[in-house]
Design a protein around this nucleic acid. Structure first.
Lengths: 253, 253
DNA sequence: ATGTGTGAAGTACTTCACAGCC
DNA sequence: GGCTGTGAAGTACTTCACACAT
Protein backbone atom coordinates (compact mmCIF):
# COMPACT_ATOMS: atom_id res chain seq x y z
CA UNK A 1 0.00 0.00 0.00
CA UNK A 2 2.75 2.38 0.91
CA UNK A 3 4.24 3.07 -2.49
CA UNK A 4 3.51 6.37 -4.23
CA UNK A 5 0.94 7.82 -1.83
CA UNK A 6 1.41 11.58 -1.95
CA UNK A 7 -1.32 12.42 0.50
CA UNK A 8 -2.76 9.67 2.55
CA UNK A 9 -6.42 8.62 2.72
CA UNK A 10 -7.77 11.61 4.67
CA UNK A 11 -8.72 9.31 7.53
CA UNK A 12 -5.11 9.36 8.61
CA UNK A 13 -3.74 6.37 10.43
CA UNK A 14 -6.91 4.36 10.95
CA UNK A 15 -6.55 1.14 12.84
CA UNK A 16 -3.16 1.19 14.46
CA UNK A 17 -2.91 -2.14 16.29
CA UNK A 18 -3.40 -1.79 20.00
CA UNK A 19 -0.11 -3.60 20.65
CA UNK A 20 1.64 -0.96 18.57
CA UNK A 21 -0.04 1.89 20.44
CA UNK A 22 1.14 0.38 23.71
CA UNK A 23 4.73 0.48 22.46
CA UNK A 24 4.74 4.00 21.10
CA UNK A 25 5.34 5.55 24.54
CA UNK A 26 8.33 3.26 24.88
CA UNK A 27 9.83 4.40 21.61
CA UNK A 28 9.08 7.97 22.56
CA UNK A 29 11.02 7.61 25.77
CA UNK A 30 14.03 6.14 24.01
CA UNK A 31 13.89 8.83 21.33
CA UNK A 32 13.64 11.60 23.90
CA UNK A 33 16.80 10.30 25.54
CA UNK A 34 18.58 10.31 22.17
CA UNK A 35 17.28 13.77 21.45
CA UNK A 36 18.71 15.05 24.74
CA UNK A 37 22.07 13.65 23.73
CA UNK A 38 21.66 15.49 20.41
CA UNK A 39 21.82 12.30 18.37
CA UNK A 40 20.48 13.25 14.92
CA UNK A 41 19.47 9.85 13.49
CA UNK A 42 18.97 6.24 14.61
CA UNK A 43 18.61 2.94 12.84
CA UNK A 44 15.74 0.63 13.69
CA UNK A 45 18.30 -1.72 15.18
CA UNK A 46 19.72 0.85 17.58
CA UNK A 47 16.37 2.26 18.61
CA UNK A 48 14.93 -1.19 19.10
CA UNK A 49 17.78 -2.08 21.43
CA UNK A 50 17.22 1.10 23.44
CA UNK A 51 13.51 0.39 23.74
CA UNK A 52 13.98 -3.30 24.50
CA UNK A 53 12.13 -4.73 21.51
CA UNK A 54 13.23 -6.37 18.29
CA UNK A 55 13.87 -4.32 15.22
CA UNK A 56 11.41 -5.99 12.85
CA UNK A 57 8.64 -5.23 15.27
CA UNK A 58 9.72 -1.65 15.58
CA UNK A 59 9.82 -1.13 11.81
CA UNK A 60 6.40 -2.72 11.45
CA UNK A 61 5.08 -0.48 14.20
CA UNK A 62 6.41 2.64 12.50
CA UNK A 63 5.01 1.51 9.18
CA UNK A 64 1.51 1.95 10.62
CA UNK A 65 2.27 5.61 11.26
CA UNK A 66 3.69 6.24 7.81
CA UNK A 67 7.04 6.15 6.07
CA UNK A 68 9.09 8.28 8.37
CA UNK A 69 12.49 6.70 7.81
CA UNK A 70 15.13 6.94 5.11
CA UNK A 71 16.36 3.74 3.54
CA UNK A 72 20.03 3.17 4.03
CA UNK A 73 20.12 5.83 6.73
CA UNK A 74 17.57 5.42 9.51
CA UNK A 75 15.13 7.72 11.29
CA UNK A 76 15.49 11.40 12.07
CA UNK A 77 15.20 11.55 15.85
CA UNK A 78 13.49 14.94 16.19
CA UNK A 79 11.04 14.22 13.43
CA UNK A 80 10.07 10.87 14.89
CA UNK A 81 9.62 12.38 18.34
CA UNK A 82 7.19 14.82 16.82
CA UNK A 83 5.29 12.24 14.78
CA UNK A 84 4.87 9.84 17.67
CA UNK A 85 3.88 12.63 20.04
CA UNK A 86 1.27 13.77 17.60
CA UNK A 87 -0.02 10.26 17.08
CA UNK A 88 -0.38 9.75 20.81
CA UNK A 89 -2.08 13.09 21.19
CA UNK A 90 0.68 14.51 23.32
CA UNK A 91 1.06 17.72 21.37
CA UNK A 92 -1.98 18.96 23.22
CA UNK A 93 -2.38 19.62 26.90
CA UNK A 94 -4.32 17.01 28.93
CA UNK A 95 -5.58 18.17 32.27
CA UNK A 96 -5.94 15.23 34.65
CA UNK A 97 -7.31 14.89 38.16
CA UNK A 98 -6.01 12.46 40.73
CA UNK A 99 -8.55 11.20 43.22
CA UNK A 100 -7.31 9.65 46.45
CA UNK A 101 -4.20 11.32 47.83
CA UNK A 102 -2.62 8.59 49.92
CA UNK A 103 0.95 7.48 49.37
CA UNK A 104 0.19 6.37 45.88
CA UNK A 105 -1.74 9.49 44.93
CA UNK A 106 1.11 11.58 46.28
CA UNK A 107 3.61 9.52 44.31
CA UNK A 108 1.61 10.13 41.16
CA UNK A 109 1.29 13.85 41.88
CA UNK A 110 5.06 14.05 42.27
CA UNK A 111 5.85 11.94 39.25
CA UNK A 112 7.78 14.01 36.73
CA UNK A 113 6.93 11.83 33.79
CA UNK A 114 3.49 13.36 33.45
CA UNK A 115 4.30 17.03 33.04
CA UNK A 116 7.00 16.30 30.51
CA UNK A 117 4.50 14.51 28.27
CA UNK A 118 1.63 16.92 28.01
CA UNK A 119 -0.21 15.88 31.15
CA UNK A 120 -1.05 18.58 33.64
CA UNK A 121 -2.31 17.73 37.10
CA UNK A 122 -5.31 20.03 37.25
CA UNK A 123 -6.35 18.99 40.74
CA UNK A 124 -5.82 16.58 43.61
CA UNK A 125 -8.98 15.35 45.27
CA UNK A 126 -9.44 13.48 48.53
CA UNK A 127 -12.41 12.53 50.69
CA UNK A 128 -10.62 13.34 53.94
CA UNK A 129 -11.54 16.88 55.07
CA UNK A 130 -8.29 17.01 57.03
CA UNK A 131 -6.37 16.85 53.74
CA UNK A 132 -8.19 19.79 52.21
CA UNK A 133 -5.91 22.73 51.54
CA UNK A 134 -2.75 20.76 52.30
CA UNK A 135 -0.37 21.10 49.38
CA UNK A 136 1.00 17.93 47.80
CA UNK A 137 3.61 18.39 45.10
CA UNK A 138 2.79 22.08 45.28
CA UNK A 139 -0.89 21.55 44.52
CA UNK A 140 -3.49 22.07 47.24
CA UNK A 141 -5.72 19.04 47.86
CA UNK A 142 -9.43 19.70 47.38
CA UNK A 143 -12.36 17.92 48.90
CA UNK A 144 -14.44 15.39 46.99
CA UNK A 145 -17.43 17.72 47.18
CA UNK A 146 -15.72 19.89 44.58
CA UNK A 147 -15.18 17.03 42.14
CA UNK A 148 -17.87 17.88 39.60
CA UNK A 149 -17.03 21.56 39.59
CA UNK A 150 -13.31 20.87 39.12
CA UNK A 151 -13.91 18.53 36.19
CA UNK A 152 -16.16 20.99 34.42
CA UNK A 153 -14.15 24.14 35.10
CA UNK A 154 -10.96 22.53 33.83
CA UNK A 155 -12.41 20.50 30.99
CA UNK A 156 -10.86 17.35 32.43
CA UNK A 157 -11.40 14.20 30.38
CA UNK A 158 -8.85 11.91 32.08
CA UNK A 159 -9.16 10.84 35.70
CA UNK A 160 -6.81 8.81 37.86
CA UNK A 161 -8.29 6.76 40.69
CA UNK A 162 -5.92 6.02 43.57
CA UNK A 163 -8.50 5.47 46.29
CA UNK A 164 -9.06 2.32 48.32
CA UNK A 165 -10.98 -0.39 46.47
CA UNK A 166 -14.21 0.29 48.31
CA UNK A 167 -14.47 3.87 47.10
CA UNK A 168 -13.34 3.33 43.52
CA UNK A 169 -16.62 2.54 41.77
CA UNK A 170 -18.41 5.44 43.37
CA UNK A 171 -15.62 7.86 42.46
CA UNK A 172 -15.63 6.41 38.97
CA UNK A 173 -19.37 6.99 38.59
CA UNK A 174 -19.01 10.59 39.66
CA UNK A 175 -16.08 11.21 37.35
CA UNK A 176 -17.98 9.75 34.41
CA UNK A 177 -21.15 11.66 35.24
CA UNK A 178 -19.11 14.85 35.33
CA UNK A 179 -17.70 14.22 31.87
CA UNK A 180 -14.54 12.15 32.27
CA UNK A 181 -14.15 9.61 29.44
CA UNK A 182 -10.81 7.97 30.27
CA UNK A 183 -9.89 6.46 33.59
CA UNK A 184 -6.65 5.07 34.93
CA UNK A 185 -7.53 2.81 37.85
CA UNK A 186 -5.05 1.86 40.56
CA UNK A 187 -7.66 0.44 42.90
CA UNK A 188 -7.86 -3.35 42.89
CA UNK A 189 -11.43 -3.52 41.58
CA UNK A 190 -13.11 -4.05 38.25
CA UNK A 191 -14.83 -0.82 37.34
CA UNK A 192 -18.10 -0.76 35.48
CA UNK A 193 -18.47 2.13 33.09
CA UNK A 194 -20.81 3.07 30.24
CA UNK A 195 -19.93 2.55 26.60
CA UNK A 196 -17.48 5.04 25.26
CA UNK A 197 -15.48 5.33 28.47
CA UNK A 198 -12.02 3.79 28.49
CA UNK A 199 -10.60 2.17 31.59
CA UNK A 200 -7.04 1.04 32.04
CA UNK A 201 -5.88 -0.49 35.22
CA UNK A 202 -2.63 -1.00 37.04
CA UNK A 203 -2.63 -3.56 39.80
CA UNK A 204 0.57 -3.77 41.74
CA UNK A 205 -0.10 -7.14 43.27
CA UNK A 206 -1.07 -8.73 39.96
CA UNK A 207 2.37 -8.03 38.57
CA UNK A 208 4.00 -9.64 41.57
CA UNK A 209 1.78 -12.68 41.25
CA UNK A 210 2.81 -13.15 37.65
CA UNK A 211 6.45 -12.98 38.72
CA UNK A 212 5.76 -15.52 41.45
CA UNK A 213 4.31 -17.89 38.88
CA UNK A 214 7.48 -17.81 36.80
CA UNK A 215 9.69 -17.89 39.85
CA UNK A 216 7.97 -21.06 40.97
CA UNK A 217 8.55 -22.57 37.58
CA UNK A 218 12.25 -21.80 37.71
CA UNK A 219 12.56 -23.54 41.06
CA UNK A 220 10.81 -26.60 39.67
CA UNK A 221 13.05 -26.75 36.63
CA UNK A 222 16.32 -26.79 38.52
CA UNK A 223 15.93 -30.53 38.82
CA UNK A 224 15.29 -31.12 35.15
CA UNK A 225 18.00 -28.77 33.89
CA UNK A 226 20.95 -31.12 34.32
CA UNK A 227 23.67 -29.23 32.49
CA UNK A 228 25.17 -25.81 33.08
CA UNK A 229 23.22 -22.80 31.97
CA UNK A 230 21.05 -22.44 28.90
CA UNK A 231 17.82 -21.49 30.58
CA UNK A 232 16.38 -19.30 27.84
CA UNK A 233 15.96 -22.19 25.45
CA UNK A 234 13.83 -24.24 27.79
CA UNK A 235 10.96 -21.83 28.09
CA UNK A 236 9.67 -20.38 24.87
CA UNK A 237 8.44 -17.09 26.27
CA UNK A 238 9.01 -14.19 23.96
CA UNK A 239 12.29 -12.43 23.96
CA UNK A 240 11.89 -8.80 24.83
CA UNK A 241 11.19 -6.92 28.00
CA UNK A 242 7.43 -6.80 27.79
CA UNK A 243 6.33 -3.31 26.81
CA UNK A 244 3.19 -3.85 28.82
CA UNK A 245 1.73 -4.90 25.50
CA UNK A 246 -1.77 -4.62 26.65
CA UNK A 247 -5.28 -5.07 25.39
CA UNK A 248 -7.29 -1.92 24.86
CA UNK A 249 -9.56 -1.85 27.88
CA UNK A 250 -12.82 -0.50 26.63
CA UNK A 251 -15.42 -1.62 29.10
CA UNK A 252 -18.75 -2.31 27.44
CA UNK A 253 -21.47 -1.85 30.03
CA UNK B 1 -12.26 -32.88 42.50
CA UNK B 2 -11.86 -33.46 38.81
CA UNK B 3 -13.40 -36.38 36.96
CA UNK B 4 -11.64 -39.66 36.32
CA UNK B 5 -8.07 -38.57 35.73
CA UNK B 6 -6.45 -39.79 38.93
CA UNK B 7 -2.95 -38.53 38.39
CA UNK B 8 -2.23 -36.19 35.58
CA UNK B 9 0.71 -36.39 33.14
CA UNK B 10 3.48 -35.92 35.73
CA UNK B 11 4.65 -32.73 34.05
CA UNK B 12 1.63 -31.03 35.56
CA UNK B 13 0.28 -28.01 33.77
CA UNK B 14 3.03 -27.43 31.24
CA UNK B 15 2.62 -24.49 28.93
CA UNK B 16 -0.14 -22.35 30.37
CA UNK B 17 -0.47 -19.44 27.95
CA UNK B 18 1.04 -16.26 29.27
CA UNK B 19 -2.24 -14.42 28.68
CA UNK B 20 -3.96 -16.92 30.93
CA UNK B 21 -1.36 -16.55 33.67
CA UNK B 22 -1.90 -12.80 33.58
CA UNK B 23 -5.60 -13.29 34.23
CA UNK B 24 -5.31 -15.81 37.06
CA UNK B 25 -4.69 -13.09 39.68
CA UNK B 26 -7.86 -11.40 38.46
CA UNK B 27 -9.93 -14.53 38.92
CA UNK B 28 -8.31 -15.07 42.27
CA UNK B 29 -9.36 -11.63 43.44
CA UNK B 30 -12.94 -12.16 42.35
CA UNK B 31 -13.02 -15.59 43.96
CA UNK B 32 -11.60 -14.28 47.21
CA UNK B 33 -14.40 -11.72 47.34
CA UNK B 34 -16.98 -14.48 46.80
CA UNK B 35 -15.30 -16.63 49.42
CA UNK B 36 -15.54 -13.80 51.95
CA UNK B 37 -19.25 -13.59 51.26
CA UNK B 38 -19.41 -17.36 51.82
CA UNK B 39 -20.69 -18.05 48.30
CA UNK B 40 -20.16 -21.80 47.78
CA UNK B 41 -20.21 -22.08 43.96
CA UNK B 42 -20.09 -19.86 40.87
CA UNK B 43 -20.86 -20.37 37.21
CA UNK B 44 -18.33 -19.31 34.61
CA UNK B 45 -20.78 -16.60 33.58
CA UNK B 46 -21.00 -15.05 37.05
CA UNK B 47 -17.31 -15.28 37.77
CA UNK B 48 -16.44 -13.87 34.38
CA UNK B 49 -18.68 -10.86 35.02
CA UNK B 50 -17.04 -10.29 38.40
CA UNK B 51 -13.58 -10.47 36.86
CA UNK B 52 -14.49 -8.34 33.85
CA UNK B 53 -13.80 -10.90 31.12
CA UNK B 54 -15.98 -13.06 28.92
CA UNK B 55 -17.05 -16.48 30.04
CA UNK B 56 -15.68 -18.52 27.15
CA UNK B 57 -12.26 -17.08 27.84
CA UNK B 58 -12.55 -17.91 31.51
CA UNK B 59 -13.56 -21.50 30.85
CA UNK B 60 -10.70 -21.90 28.41
CA UNK B 61 -8.30 -20.45 30.94
CA UNK B 62 -9.45 -22.88 33.61
CA UNK B 63 -9.21 -25.77 31.21
CA UNK B 64 -5.44 -25.27 31.15
CA UNK B 65 -5.31 -25.87 34.87
CA UNK B 66 -7.46 -28.97 34.82
CA UNK B 67 -11.11 -29.89 35.07
CA UNK B 68 -12.05 -28.15 38.26
CA UNK B 69 -15.74 -27.46 37.54
CA UNK B 70 -18.91 -29.50 37.61
CA UNK B 71 -21.11 -29.53 34.53
CA UNK B 72 -24.55 -28.19 35.16
CA UNK B 73 -23.39 -26.66 38.43
CA UNK B 74 -20.30 -24.47 38.20
CA UNK B 75 -17.12 -24.15 40.22
CA UNK B 76 -16.56 -24.68 43.91
CA UNK B 77 -15.24 -21.35 45.14
CA UNK B 78 -12.90 -22.57 47.88
CA UNK B 79 -11.46 -25.32 45.76
CA UNK B 80 -10.77 -22.96 42.88
CA UNK B 81 -9.13 -20.42 45.18
CA UNK B 82 -6.79 -23.13 46.32
CA UNK B 83 -6.02 -24.44 42.85
CA UNK B 84 -5.28 -21.01 41.40
CA UNK B 85 -3.21 -20.02 44.42
CA UNK B 86 -1.17 -23.14 44.03
CA UNK B 87 -0.74 -22.63 40.31
CA UNK B 88 0.49 -19.09 40.89
CA UNK B 89 2.82 -20.26 43.61
CA UNK B 90 1.04 -18.28 46.30
CA UNK B 91 0.77 -21.14 48.74
CA UNK B 92 4.36 -20.47 49.63
CA UNK B 93 5.84 -17.40 51.22
CA UNK B 94 7.71 -14.98 48.96
CA UNK B 95 10.03 -12.56 50.69
CA UNK B 96 10.46 -9.40 48.61
CA UNK B 97 12.61 -6.33 49.01
CA UNK B 98 11.59 -2.86 47.91
CA UNK B 99 14.43 -0.60 46.84
CA UNK B 100 13.83 3.14 46.73
CA UNK B 101 11.56 4.37 49.50
CA UNK B 102 10.11 7.56 48.07
CA UNK B 103 6.38 8.12 47.83
CA UNK B 104 5.97 5.18 45.53
CA UNK B 105 8.12 2.85 47.58
CA UNK B 106 6.18 3.84 50.68
CA UNK B 107 2.90 3.25 48.87
CA UNK B 108 4.09 -0.23 47.94
CA UNK B 109 5.26 -0.95 51.47
CA UNK B 110 1.83 0.04 52.78
CA UNK B 111 -0.10 -1.84 50.14
CA UNK B 112 -2.21 -4.52 51.78
CA UNK B 113 -2.60 -6.59 48.65
CA UNK B 114 0.86 -8.08 49.06
CA UNK B 115 0.66 -9.63 52.48
CA UNK B 116 -2.70 -11.19 51.75
CA UNK B 117 -1.27 -13.04 48.79
CA UNK B 118 1.82 -14.65 50.14
CA UNK B 119 4.23 -11.77 49.67
CA UNK B 120 6.17 -10.60 52.67
CA UNK B 121 8.12 -7.38 52.62
CA UNK B 122 11.43 -8.63 53.97
CA UNK B 123 13.13 -5.25 53.81
CA UNK B 124 12.95 -1.67 52.61
CA UNK B 125 16.15 -0.29 51.15
CA UNK B 126 17.10 3.27 50.32
CA UNK B 127 20.31 5.02 49.32
CA UNK B 128 19.62 8.06 51.52
CA UNK B 129 21.46 7.65 54.86
CA UNK B 130 18.92 10.00 56.45
CA UNK B 131 16.20 7.42 55.80
CA UNK B 132 18.08 4.62 57.55
CA UNK B 133 16.27 3.37 60.62
CA UNK B 134 13.13 5.37 59.88
CA UNK B 135 10.15 3.01 59.93
CA UNK B 136 7.84 2.95 56.91
CA UNK B 137 4.75 0.79 57.20
CA UNK B 138 6.27 -0.49 60.42
CA UNK B 139 9.45 -1.70 58.75
CA UNK B 140 12.72 0.14 59.35
CA UNK B 141 14.44 1.37 56.20
CA UNK B 142 17.93 -0.01 55.67
CA UNK B 143 20.80 1.48 53.75
CA UNK B 144 21.78 0.26 50.28
CA UNK B 145 25.10 -0.96 51.69
CA UNK B 146 23.18 -3.79 53.33
CA UNK B 147 21.51 -4.91 50.11
CA UNK B 148 23.55 -8.03 49.40
CA UNK B 149 23.42 -9.21 53.00
CA UNK B 150 19.66 -8.70 53.21
CA UNK B 151 19.02 -10.64 50.01
CA UNK B 152 21.13 -13.56 51.12
CA UNK B 153 20.00 -13.70 54.74
CA UNK B 154 16.34 -13.70 53.74
CA UNK B 155 16.58 -15.84 50.63
CA UNK B 156 14.93 -13.11 48.59
CA UNK B 157 14.29 -13.95 44.94
CA UNK B 158 11.92 -11.11 44.04
CA UNK B 159 12.96 -7.47 44.08
CA UNK B 160 10.93 -4.33 43.49
CA UNK B 161 12.70 -1.29 42.08
CA UNK B 162 11.08 2.05 42.90
CA UNK B 163 14.13 4.24 42.55
CA UNK B 164 14.62 7.15 40.13
CA UNK B 165 15.43 6.06 36.59
CA UNK B 166 19.11 6.91 36.93
CA UNK B 167 19.70 4.46 39.75
CA UNK B 168 17.58 1.59 38.47
CA UNK B 169 20.10 -0.33 36.35
CA UNK B 170 22.75 -0.23 39.02
CA UNK B 171 20.31 -1.40 41.69
CA UNK B 172 19.13 -4.09 39.32
CA UNK B 173 22.68 -5.33 38.73
CA UNK B 174 23.29 -5.58 42.46
CA UNK B 175 20.02 -7.38 43.08
CA UNK B 176 20.77 -9.90 40.36
CA UNK B 177 24.34 -10.41 41.52
CA UNK B 178 23.03 -11.10 45.02
CA UNK B 179 20.65 -13.76 43.74
CA UNK B 180 17.37 -12.07 42.80
CA UNK B 181 15.81 -13.67 39.72
CA UNK B 182 12.56 -11.72 39.36
CA UNK B 183 12.29 -7.96 39.23
CA UNK B 184 9.32 -5.65 39.21
CA UNK B 185 10.50 -2.34 37.81
CA UNK B 186 8.69 0.95 38.42
CA UNK B 187 11.52 3.11 37.14
CA UNK B 188 11.01 4.42 33.62
CA UNK B 189 14.00 2.63 32.12
CA UNK B 190 14.62 -0.53 30.16
CA UNK B 191 16.61 -2.84 32.39
CA UNK B 192 19.23 -5.17 31.03
CA UNK B 193 19.46 -8.48 32.86
CA UNK B 194 21.13 -11.86 32.24
CA UNK B 195 19.25 -14.84 30.90
CA UNK B 196 17.01 -16.49 33.41
CA UNK B 197 16.02 -13.29 35.17
CA UNK B 198 12.46 -12.07 34.66
CA UNK B 199 11.63 -8.41 34.51
CA UNK B 200 8.17 -6.92 34.55
CA UNK B 201 7.63 -3.25 34.43
CA UNK B 202 4.94 -0.81 35.38
CA UNK B 203 5.20 2.63 33.86
CA UNK B 204 2.66 5.09 35.12
CA UNK B 205 3.06 7.57 32.31
CA UNK B 206 2.81 4.93 29.60
CA UNK B 207 -0.69 4.04 30.71
CA UNK B 208 -1.74 7.66 30.59
CA UNK B 209 -0.28 8.05 27.12
CA UNK B 210 -2.31 5.12 25.87
CA UNK B 211 -5.44 6.71 27.30
CA UNK B 212 -4.55 9.99 25.63
CA UNK B 213 -4.29 8.21 22.30
CA UNK B 214 -7.83 6.86 22.58
CA UNK B 215 -9.12 10.09 24.02
CA UNK B 216 -7.79 11.94 21.02
CA UNK B 217 -9.53 9.46 18.72
CA UNK B 218 -12.84 10.01 20.44
CA UNK B 219 -12.56 13.74 19.95
CA UNK B 220 -11.82 13.23 16.26
CA UNK B 221 -14.77 10.93 15.76
CA UNK B 222 -17.39 13.28 17.11
CA UNK B 223 -17.55 14.87 13.69
CA UNK B 224 -17.92 11.62 11.79
CA UNK B 225 -20.45 10.04 14.15
CA UNK B 226 -23.56 11.74 12.80
CA UNK B 227 -26.26 9.89 14.68
CA UNK B 228 -26.90 9.53 18.38
CA UNK B 229 -24.78 7.09 20.30
CA UNK B 230 -23.43 3.76 19.17
CA UNK B 231 -19.77 4.33 19.81
CA UNK B 232 -18.80 0.80 20.65
CA UNK B 233 -19.61 -0.48 17.19
CA UNK B 234 -17.33 1.96 15.42
CA UNK B 235 -14.13 0.84 16.95
CA UNK B 236 -13.47 -2.85 17.06
CA UNK B 237 -11.34 -2.82 20.14
CA UNK B 238 -11.91 -5.82 22.33
CA UNK B 239 -14.69 -5.82 24.84
CA UNK B 240 -13.39 -6.43 28.30
CA UNK B 241 -11.55 -4.38 30.83
CA UNK B 242 -8.01 -5.26 29.90
CA UNK B 243 -6.66 -7.68 32.45
CA UNK B 244 -3.25 -6.25 31.77
CA UNK B 245 -2.97 -9.18 29.40
CA UNK B 246 0.67 -8.85 29.14
CA UNK B 247 3.63 -10.39 27.41
CA UNK B 248 6.03 -12.38 29.55
CA UNK B 249 8.97 -10.04 29.93
CA UNK B 250 11.97 -12.28 29.89
CA UNK B 251 14.89 -10.12 28.90
CA UNK B 252 17.46 -12.01 26.84
CA UNK B 253 20.83 -10.40 27.52
C1' DA C 1 26.41 -0.92 0.72
C1' DT C 2 23.03 -0.16 3.99
C1' DG C 3 18.77 -0.15 6.36
C1' DT C 4 13.78 0.75 5.56
C1' DG C 5 9.12 -0.92 4.44
C1' DT C 6 6.21 -4.80 3.81
C1' DG C 7 4.02 -9.07 1.83
C1' DA C 8 3.87 -13.67 3.48
C1' DA C 9 4.43 -17.15 6.91
C1' DG C 10 4.23 -18.33 11.54
C1' DT C 11 2.50 -18.08 16.33
C1' DA C 12 -0.53 -16.78 20.12
C1' DC C 13 -4.76 -15.68 21.73
C1' DT C 14 -9.96 -15.29 21.46
C1' DT C 15 -14.47 -16.58 20.35
C1' DC C 16 -17.84 -19.77 18.65
C1' DA C 17 -20.67 -23.50 19.14
C1' DC C 18 -21.86 -27.75 20.74
C1' DA C 19 -21.02 -32.57 22.67
C1' DG C 20 -21.14 -34.49 27.03
C1' DC C 21 -21.94 -34.77 31.93
C1' DC C 22 -24.68 -33.59 36.02
C1' DG D 1 -32.26 -28.02 31.63
C1' DG D 2 -28.05 -26.07 32.73
C1' DC D 3 -23.27 -25.43 32.49
C1' DT D 4 -18.66 -27.15 31.72
C1' DG D 5 -14.88 -28.42 28.67
C1' DT D 6 -12.96 -28.17 24.17
C1' DG D 7 -12.18 -28.86 19.09
C1' DA D 8 -12.51 -25.75 15.28
C1' DA D 9 -12.73 -21.25 13.27
C1' DG D 10 -11.52 -16.65 13.57
C1' DT D 11 -8.58 -12.68 14.81
C1' DA D 12 -4.48 -10.23 16.31
C1' DC D 13 0.16 -9.97 16.69
C1' DT D 14 5.09 -11.30 15.59
C1' DT D 15 8.82 -12.65 12.85
C1' DC D 16 10.98 -13.65 8.52
C1' DA D 17 13.17 -12.37 4.50
C1' DC D 18 13.89 -9.59 0.74
C1' DA D 19 12.71 -5.93 -2.84
C1' DC D 20 13.84 -1.39 -3.18
C1' DA D 21 15.15 3.38 -2.14
C1' DT D 22 19.11 6.17 -0.97
Amino acid sequence: MATGRTHRPATRSRGIPEATVARLPLYLRALTALSERSVPTVSSEELAAAAGVNSAKLRKDFSYLGSYGTRGVGYDVEYLVYQISRELGLTQDWPVVIVGIGNLGAALANYGGFASRGFRVAALIDADPAMAGKPVAGIPVQHTDELEKIIKDNGVSIGVIATPAGAAQQVCDRLVAAGVTSILNFAPTVLTVPDGVDVRKVDLSIELQILAFHEQRKAGEETAAGDGALPAATRDTSTDQGPDGDVPAVMPA
